[in-house]
């Protein structure tokens, strides 16, 4: 450290002023969690939300590209301050590899939705099929009673199609998958973390053997 500057605040410039915790602006966050595939982990992850009475908007769990590792994509409305704490408390669970939160700007996200529409209503209304085409949705099943329309897209697009079809009075059932998301960052944090942990362990073993 430079001797002349010793009595100034050496690190103050780089530190933003400490603010009170508990900012109140809520937004929709996407939380991506990677964990070992162990029974009961879903419970542990959702319990962190329950404890703070945060409602989970959507939840998707599936195998990830890494063998033995499961990926959770969760969305919830809350504040940045709270989501930071939630993510750390999820990550604290022994069998959780990593938990991170993202805003919509930091991820590419998609949903899939199925719309079951009444065939007579659908055929009797030329608007209905126009709407399906305009939304680039696909009809995947047709029989005399009902058709099934499938749509991939952003959450808002799926809602928009639903709203328009419903206005035509032909929707019998509607289901959406909940969000799946991929980060748009160039770093693959989970694989890098796993490599780092394995390397650390090898180093530690080496040191232990030398002692």
């Amino acid at each position: 450290m430079n001797k002349e500057t010793k009595n100034t605040e050496p690190t103050m410039q780089v530190l933003p002023h400490r603010e009170d915790l508990g900012g109140s602006i809520k937004s929709l966050y996407t939380i991506i969690v990677h964990s070992e595939n162990i029974a009961g982990l879903l419970n542990q992850v959702t319990a962190v939300f329950t404890r703070r009475q945060i409602n989970i908007e959507s939840l998707n769990v599936s195998a990830s590209s890494i063998p033995g590792v499961h990926k959770y994509t969760i969305t919830a409305w809350t504040t940045q301050d709270i989501i930071e704490k939630v993510v750390k408390q999820i990550e604290r669970k022994i069998d959780v590899l990593q938990a991170n939160y993202f805003t919509d700007a930091e991820i590419y996200q998609h949903e899939i939705a199925l719309y079951k529409v009444s065939t007579p209503e659908f055929q009797g209304n030329p608007m209905a099929s126009k709407i399906v085409r305009r939304h680039s949705a696909r009809i995947v099943e047709v029989n005399p009673v009902f058709c099934i329309v499938e749509k991939n897209g952003m959450s808002e697009e799926i809602t928009a199609l639903y709203d328009e079809l419903r206005a035509q009075n032909c929707v019998l059932q509607f289901v959406r998958s909940g969000r799946v998301a991929i980060t748009t960052s160039c770093f693959e944090r989970v694989s890098e973390y796993l490599d780092m942990r394995e390397e650390q362990y090898r180093q530690q073993k080496k040191e232990d053997n030398h002692e």
């Binding site: 400490r18 009170d20 915790l21 990550e91």
Partner: peptide, 14 residues
């Protein structure tokens, strides 16, 4: 030693 303690109750500078 527990990262979830940072900023949990009191906002920390370092």
């Amino acid at each position: 030693i527990d990262p979830s303690e940072f900023n949990k109750n009191v906002k920390v500078d370092i």
